[in-house]
Nucleic acid binder design. Structure first.
Lengths: 134, 134
DNA sequence: CTGCATGCAAACCGTTTGCATCCCC
DNA sequence: GGGGATGCAAACGGTTTGCATGCAG
């Protein structure tokens, strides 16, 4: 069984506390407020460990950084193509997709994920219209 | 308009030649056989340029590396969680998803992508059964 | 006690970038 | 001929890892 260290607990608590899907370094900053001497490596090691043991989700989304999710139920996401933020999206999961895909591919299918892309409200306000100044 | 350099042409040709979705460095290796002095930076610069101008697709898939696709029509993908390979998958694109999502999010939705995950035939053969030795 | 976990820092890997030179238009 | 494109190599950002020490069980 997975050993319950202070670091582990606090990382999990901080992740569960937010509805956003923080990156490892965002989580590092959050955790550091309570555990100033924690190392970034510890955060990475524990996130991977918890993801492997199914306690949390490691989101394989676009962008340069992986993001983490305390909600392990199957659900879809939307990513802001401007700032990279990721939010949950409340569209019902389509289980039939896997059945459909199974018929057309030699792969052994394990799952699927839908990722929407768009502009989040914050970024929308920042750039109401691309550029009408010239 | 986008300047037509030898490098550009050959990168595009090599990408169009394969049905796989190569990473930048895979493409670099392919192109280098015809253009031994090309630099990796040139490959990256041109792939980004061509993606921005809509000539090719930059796949925002999971994994550590970006992948590129000469087919710009909307379609879905499957990624092997063992070797990272990405293939097209022949499941009809669900346009209604965007409409559905629009109703439940404050984001301005631009698009969506479905990524299946599974084990490719090659990796399936390599590991017929995970480990039954204990 | 003892071995897994931590903190720290160096290493890694994919990607980006600055710069002098090159070559397409 | 001129400005964008190239080759090269150094820089970068995110992640991983080796090692001595620390602490949970």
């Amino acid at each position: 069984m997975i050993r319950l260290t202070t670091q582990r607990q606090i990382i999990l608590e901080e992740l569960a506390k937010v509805t956003s899907h923080p990156t490892a370094s965002e989580l590092y900053d959050m955790v550091r407020k309570r555990l100033p001497r924690i190392g970034l490596g510890t955060v990475y090691r524990n996130l991977d460990l918890m993801a492997d043991s199914g306690m949390i989700l490691k989101l394989e989304v676009g962008g340069t950084q992986k993001r983490f999710d305390a909600t392990t139920e199957d659900h879809y996401h939307i990513r802001c193509s401007s700032c990279g933020k990721v939010d949950d999206i409340d569209v019902p999961v389509i289980q039939e997709l896997v059945a459909q895909a199974t018929e057309t591919t030699p792969y052994l299918i394990m799952g699927h994920h839908v990722e929407f892309s768009g502009i989040c409200p914050t970024c929308r306000e920042k750039k109401p219209h691309p550029d009408t100044t010239d």
